[in-house]
Design a protein around this nucleic acid. Structure first.
Length: 425
RNA sequence: GGAGAUGUGGCAGAGUGGUCUAUUGCGUCUGAUUCGAAAUCAGAAGUCCGUGAAAGCGGUCCGGGGGUUCGACUCCCUCCAUCUCCGCCA
């Protein structure tokens, strides 16, 4: 949510930011509602002030045993008008707020202009593509040959997009998650969190999934609870309605969770294999920063995610998203993409975003900094999501005899297994 | 799932329809005293909205929401959370 002050003091700033994003919002309607709302509020305050004076007077008269009928009549009339004005106010406020929840964040000035993912800027590339002569097997074939996962049975028990990891495949994924978490805790100063995978509506609004993206979420209607699309939701909302101790900032958390996404708008896109799933596993990094230092924290988060890819020996690149490709709540965002040599394409494995105050306003997360109560900045980034990392791993670390080399950092988590060998025929 | 109890400021804890501008204690901050500190004394302090250049002024907030009333911390309804007991269960 944007600072409501902007709607009356810096409308042009909003307009400009939304234009850069290519977002469509009826800004004029909102500005007019805000003006009207304040007019009513002023009138309400006057009426309430009058009523307070009158009821005080009634109390005084009654105590001294005098007749207070005239003042009681007056407050009765005032009460009726207050009620009427209050209804108008609540109605306007409700409609304004509903609209405000659908307004995306404004991009940071440093974000490059652009309309789509084609305009994103590559800011870094690490590692190298394999030599053209080497023709790696497709990850689905590797998995099949080595017995690492089972899509058919996943589809049988649940549906497509819910794969089963089997045997060493299951262990490999678990190894990655454990490695990610342990590494963040030991080297990056994160506190590990094991959050609920199901959250209430308020939490989903807090981080910005609702109301705009309701159709992408799994919803348990009976209890009005949502399956989380990312650990960002529970971990960020963990501090909802809190005043954080300024001295404790920045707070840094790393959390594993399963992630659930209906992918309602993406049907037919990347439906084969691991590229787009309804359920997957991810370690998410979340930071709460004082406003002045959030961009420092943003770079730090990005570095944390990059380190993991380097340790896994995967060729990757960093994109700075353009204004048109920026997520709803982000002011600035980096995407990390790994290269999958058989797919011959880049796969997004991490999105590192600075939300500035956007989520903190929605979730009401503040801190008193330099004597002033203010909304803090929230940031998060995947560190990392396993499916596409697994794809890159399967296609990048193949051995000559059709096996899979396990990156050194994962070996301790694999019981010392250094290579997964093909099944004997 | 059933029965009961509780929810008040940073914390503890009073307040059962109008002198509540929320008693009191602890903690916090400022000042006095002191070479400095402790102790002591005096004072201050919250949130949010509006208005204003500012000082200030008005409003709001006693778990959330709604209701009764001229007036609600106080009465009623509802939801949520916590605690105790019972039942069921990984």
């Amino acid at each position: 949510m944007l600072d409501p002050r902007l709607y009356r003091e810096e409308v042009d700033k909003i307009r400009h930011g939304l234009e850069r994003r290519g977002a469509k919002v009826d800004l004029d309607a909102m500005v007019n509602m805000d003006i009207e709302k304040r007019k009513i509020n002023l009138r309400l305050d006057q009426l309430k002030s009058e009523r307070n004076t009158a009821t005080e007077n009634i109390a005084k008269l009654k105590r001294s045993g005098q007749d207070a009928q005239a003042d009681i009549e007056k407050t009765r009339t005032l009460g009726d008008e207050i009620k009427a004005q209050q209804e108008r106010f609540d109605d306007l406020e409700g409609r304004f707020k509903a609209m405000a929840l659908l307004v995306p964040n404004l991009p940071h000035p440093s974000v490059p202009d652009g309309r789509s993912s084609a305009d994103n800027k590559v800011v870094k590339e690490w590692g190298q593509k394999p030599a053209a002569a080497a023709k790696p097997k497709h990850h689905l074939d590797v998995g099949k040959d080595l017995g690492l996962f089972d899509f058919e049975r996943g589809a049988k028990i649940t549906g497509s997009g819910f794969p089963i990891h089997t045997g060493l495949g299951a262990r490999l994924e678990r190894a990655m998650l454990n490695f990610f978490l342990d590494f963040h805790v030991a080297n990056h100063g994160f506190t590990e969190i094991s959050p609920p995978f199901v959250v209430n509506r308020a939490s989903m609004i807090g981080t910005g999934q609702l109301p705009k993206f309701a159709e992408d979420m799994y919803h348990c209607a009976e209890d009005d609870l949502y399956l989380i699309p990312t650990a960002e939701v529970p971990v960020t909302n963990m501090h909802g309605n809190e005043v954080l101790d300024a001295a404790s900032l920045p707070l840094s958390y790393a959390a594993y969770s399963a992630c659930f996404r209906r992918e309602a708008g993406s049907w037919g896109k990347d439906t084969r294999g691991f590229l787009r799933l309804h359920q997957f596993n991810k370690v998410e990094m979340v930071m709460f920063s004082e406003p002045a230092k959030s961009y420092e924290a943003h770079e730090y988060l990005r570095a944390c995610a990059e380190t993991l890819l380097q340790k896994l020996g995967l060729h990757y690149r960093v994109l700075e998203l353009c204004t048109g490709d920026l997520g709803f709540g982000a002011a600035k965002c980096y995407d990390l993409e790994v290269f999958a040599p058989a797919e011959e394409r880049w796969l997004e494995v991490s999105s590192v975003s600075n939300f500035e105050e956007f989520q903190a306003r929605r979730a009401n997360i503040r801190a008193k900094i330099d004597g002033k109560m203010q909304f803090i900045h929230t940031l998060n980034g995947s560190g990392l999501a396993t499916p596409r990392v697994l794809v890159a791993l399967l296609e990048s670390h193949q051995t000559a005899d059709g096996g899979l080399r396990i990156p050194e950092v994962l070996q301790p988590y694999m019981g010392g297994v250094t290579e997964i060998k093909p099944k004997k025929k």
